[in-house]
């Protein structure tokens, strides 16, 4: 049985709930009403595969203002020792907020169509 990445993601969530849940688990084996009786399971849901446009970062142009880091709804920007290191695309949905909030004069982030990267490993499977 081949599974969509969506199914895999959902199953990861459910496997957190009950290790006995198989990919083809029947209704008797699922938590009542879709309850997820555990916290933090969103980390299992690699929302990066929703992305149609991808942020591309220029280290040279970046002035480390951290606006991208602050505004990204998926906490995809990586900062170490006060320095932006780049973007982790695992959860990046390609909303483009980072490119919008990056100061216009700096323009260190550009959004590019995912098609341009189709040979890449687009989503890191968690």
């Amino acid at each position: 049985m081949t599974l969509s990445s969506q199914t895999k993601n959902l199953l990861k969530v459910h496997q957190q709930v009950n290790v006995n849940i198989e990919p083809n688990a029947g209704w008797r084996d699922l938590p009542i009403g879709g309850v997820i009786p555990q916290a933090g399971t969103a980390t299992q849901f690699a929302t990066g595969d929703w992305r149609t446009i991808r942020p591309v970062w220029s280290k040279e142009k970046c002035i480390n203002c951290h606006r991208c880091w602050l505004y990204c709804p998926d906490m995809s920007w990586i900062s170490e020792n006060g320095q932006i290191q780049g973007v982790d695309l695992t959860y990046c949905k390609g909303c483009g907020i980072c490119a919008n909030v990056c100061p216009a004069k700096v323009h260190a982030i550009e959004m590019h169509p995912e098609d341009n990267f189709k040979d890449d490993e687009v989503v890191k499977e968690g």
Binding site: L10, W27, R28
Partner: peptide, 23 residues
């Protein structure tokens, strides 16, 4: 024991939850 109620369940799982409900 933090948990989530009323989450997303799409083509792959929604039907199973409705079957539970019918039961």
């Amino acid at each position: 024991h933090p948990k989530t109620l009323g989450p997303l369940a799409l083509q792959d799982f929604y039907f199973e939850f409705k079957r539970q409900q019918a039961e």
